[in-house]
Design a binder for these strands. Structure first.
Lengths: 225, 225
DNA sequence: GATCCCTCCGTTATCGATAATAAATCGAGG
DNA sequence: CCTCGATTTATTATCGATAACGGAGGGATC
């Protein structure tokens, strides 16, 4: 690690936003963040530029930088997109996978379990995203990886935003094992089945419905008032 | 316009990369670009950071920034992704479109035709992407717009990379008209049909096959040598 | 009383200089 | 002649200062 100021700021802000410690609409001024995290404006600037590229903040020129909004419709689309990207990637993965790839996945898997063991939610999440990224990398579709990363960030952010949807950490880590098994066997239909099932458990459909219902209720309340 | 140095540099580099004036693997050093375009390193830095967010360059820390590679497989995936995003967006668009949206699209359409009339390839391309972005914006899925933008950039870049695939400019502009007509009529199936057909004409399937064949031939030649 | 303009203030945007780092080069030793 | 290590060099990363910009608020005018 030891990524230098810019990397630290990026990681820290990303964590806070995805973990919903910073709520949508929150305004971030470059100098304030620089003071808070002990670095120069330039480092914060770079971090914010990258966060904008990930869709977590919106930079409005000289009117400041705000944390982006969340809504169930977009989250549902993001998850669908993610499904599609990963499942299509998986078809290529089984044809290209080599032993080293599987070893790398097992390594990340161990890191994920370690994070789960010490109750480090964010650590689990980071490892999970890295795991999926590593799996997808095998497909060779490098230019699509950042899109997948973006979808993952947003689906997780939404998942954590719906607080009644939290799941035990260890269970999350265990869900990768059948996928790895199918990969080792180069079993394409099995991989697709396991991966698809896994993705379905990230955010269940009823959660989208629940959030949509809530949003509608809020809307009505606002119109009455 | 008058976007300041950073915006100018961004637009210029983006144009050169998408138009394939800068080929994959080309190395861009911040100070060299700054000198060439007459601005400071910081402005170039910001532009390169954004270009990385668009997937057009790859920043490798202190080893320089290189223009990303192109391959037919990824381009095909990108186009498929684009299709999917736009078609799903279109279903929402018909339910939400208002007169102002159509007026905005017509405005962009005019700009596109003007660019075509003066033989400004890049102008046509920019207007085309803006048109599709404006159409998609009506869907309200704001967080997905940058992903769509990215897919558009890459599909066009690939299209221009396959030189035998150039099409007359005016024809490109005209292809939006039936889509607009369906939109005005709030005809969902018609919109999907026209939009889908339009997207199919961007890069035809045989082009992907042609590029793949070429790449394979190159590979063989390289192995022989 | 409302409207317009103008100044002030907070914020980003830009710059030039410096520090840090990795690749390339050159030289010495085996 | 090859290999390893020190040195040079090219490049990014970071910083602090300043310029440019947009909005908010106060004051004058109709």
């Amino acid at each position: 690690m030891a990524e230098g100021p810019a990397g630290r700021v990026l990681a820290e802000l990303r964590r806070r936003i995805v973990m919903n410690e910073m709520t949508p609409g929150r305004v971030l001024t470059e100098l304030a963040v620089a003071a808070a995290l002990g670095c120069s404006q330039a480092a914060v600037r770079e971090a914010l530029l990258r966060l904008e590229g990930e869709g977590l903040v919106l930079r409005a020129g000289r009117q400041g930088t705000t944390v982006t909004d969340l809504d169930a419709d977009t989250a549902a689309e993001m998850l669908d997109l993610r499904r599609r990207i990963e499942l299509r990637g998986a078809r290529r993965v089984v044809r290209r996978v080599v032993a080293g790839d599987i070893a790398a996945l097992e390594e990340i898997q161990r890191a994920m379990e370690a994070a789960a063991a010490r109750g480090d939610d964010w650590g689990v999440l980071e490892a999970d995203m890295e795991w999926h990224a590593a799996l997808f990398r095998v497909s060779g579709l490098h230019a699509m990886a950042p899109i997948l990363a973006r979808c993952m960030l947003h689906t997780h952010r939404f998942r954590l935003w719906a607080p009644w949807h939290r799941r035990p950490l260890a269970a999350t880590a265990a869900r990768h094992l059948p996928i790895l098994a199918a990969l080792r066997a180069q079993d394409a239909p099995g991989l697709a089945r396991e991966l698809g099932g896994h993705l379905d458990t990230i955010v269940e459909r009823r959660v989208f419905a629940g959030v949509a219902r809530r949003a509608a209720a809020d809307e009505i309340r606002r119109n009455v008032a």
